[in-house]
Amino acid sequence: MPTPLVVSDVAKSFTMHLRDGIKLPVVAGVSFSIRAGECTVLGGPSGAGKSSILKMLYGNYAVDEGQIIVRHEDGLIDLANASPRTVLAVRRQTIGYVSQFLRTVPRVSALDVVAEPLVERGEEREVARGKARALLAQLNLPEKLWALPPATFSGGEQQRVNIARGFITGHPILLLDEPTASLDATNRNVVIELIAAKKAAGVALLGIFHDHDVREAVADRIIDVTAFAPGKLAA
């Protein structure tokens, strides 16, 4: 399907009950769609709500208004109003996410962290581990780290585990939140290659890239998020 994800008139604000209920609007009137085989980039200054939009598309943040229509299995789901169970199914099958920070679990090796999304989709553990090894090698993560839990890794090493984990599956939609922030030039190029491969496979990518060069290399389209600033709705 050419546009597997359509965002329609989404709005979000935070209500800080601990500070007398101050309401902080984040975004309003968010409408866009992304296309298969393309990488769409969310652009705009810090604080404009780029990360929040990504998180809403993953179900990690709640949506106040609007719809997020996703093509999931053979039907359409409105992620903004879906039950937790449905969101979990969408995450498992349809939407992948490379977050900015790796949340580590004690005692699970980097290899198994990367293999887990495949195992959850029913892949045999050893096969999944094989694919994980290939990706980690491509990302130049030293082999001696593969059997260790990532809690003690450097920022760049953790980021590479995160990227591998996000790219290992065949999810048709991939959300990327600053995937190259802590990487050196060599590994930035690896990520560019990985994104190109995903595009060729027909995956729809949506990402936030602060690095100018990477953005230039991967972006097919840039959406300026300042267009969705709250209070800017067309009169």
Binding site: A62, P84, V87
Partner: peptide, 21 residues
């Protein structure tokens, strides 16, 4: 109530916000 990561990352109820903070 809801997804664990949603409730912890984007708490909406006053009491949840208190707990998380």
């Amino acid at each position: 109530s809801g997804l664990t990561d949603r409730v912890l990352d984007d708490p909406r109820a006053p009491y949840t916000q208190l707990l998380v903070s």
